[in-house]
Design a protein around this nucleic acid. Structure first.
Lengths: 154, 154
DNA sequence: TCATTATCTTTAACGTGTTAAATATATAGG
DNA sequence: CCTATATATTTAACACGTTAAAGATAATGA
């Protein structure tokens, strides 16, 4: 059994100690705590990101919304249909540029966001209590630096 | 424009400075650098994770493989079919437990992993050069601590 | 003005994520 | 031995991720 554990440790150091997988695992651990709540409100994680971004920006076109909510264009097209069908958002056209959509929260959408945001904040607090706000801050700083470094030219 | 930038900064501090989104963004930045290479070899990111884990473990059942490769059971079922159809893996049954599968790399699979692993390592090195090995190590440590804290009881 | 090129959004096709349920085999208790 | 329960894997259904391409509108230049 000591031997088996040794082999496992070796394999972990190879695939697990790699940035993409470490990021994926950490994210799974986190989302496992949010998903049941989102499911109970009938939204997916991605739909929720879109709603939150809209709540902070009043009016956006699809390109900006996709960028800030971290979803791809094709996914956003489907999400917009779903959210519009539930009357959580309004979709119009830009008056000066017929290509652009103008997307905003409906009144129901705003109320929905408030409700879910409260529950989301409560879950985030339990995570903070467990992990430590300082550690979360340090991870966020590291991740921002990492992302910035990857985006820099060359 | 200074005003527009200020608004943007505020919104970023709200949705962007949140653990799930920061993890997602960092991961996207990284995978954008690996995906074209994987696509050129005809494997998805998830299939590649499965192959790598198999390369480090010789023989596994589906449950362990799914856990270590960070894919869900239903996804693994589909991935196994795809990789078996390409003869990159062999799938058998556990001799003492008819429920379990026994999955291992084929000879072609081993060669495939070697080829792709070389290119993958080269890409990882360019990332290391850009980001700094020290920073990567620090992010990995933070993420491991975060994941451990989230998994701890209560 | 007209054709060309660029930009915004959607559609298509296929693979994966997620949840629930089905299937098959093992194990435990009576 | 037989039934009930647990475990391993697959299937189903629906949403998103990813790439490529199509459709629609703007901007550009001859």
């Amino acid at each position: 059994m000591a031997e088996a554990r040794k082999n496992e440790a070796v394999s972990l150091s190879r695939t697990r100690r790699t940035l993409p997988i470490a990021l994926l695992r950490a994210r799974e651990q986190l989302m496992d705590r949010f998903r049941p709540m989102l499911l109970s409100h009938g939204v997916t994680e991605q739909q929720w990101r879109v709603l939150r971004v809209l709540n902070e920006n009043a009016e956006m076109d699809a390109t900006d919304l996709a960028e800030k909510a971290c979803v791809l264009g094709p996914s956003l097209s489907r999400i917009i249909k779903a959210l519009e069908a539930r009357a959580l958002i309004h979709v119009g056209k830009h008056p000066k540029d017929g290509r652009r959509a103008v997307i905003k929260l409906s009144h129901e959408g705003q109320q929905f966001v408030e409700t879910v945001a409260r529950e989301s904040a409560a879950i985030y607090k339990t995570i903070e209590a467990k992990v430590g706000a300082d550690r979360i801050g340090s991870v966020l700083n590291d991740l921002e630096e990492l992302t910035a470094a990857l985006q820099s030219p060359d």
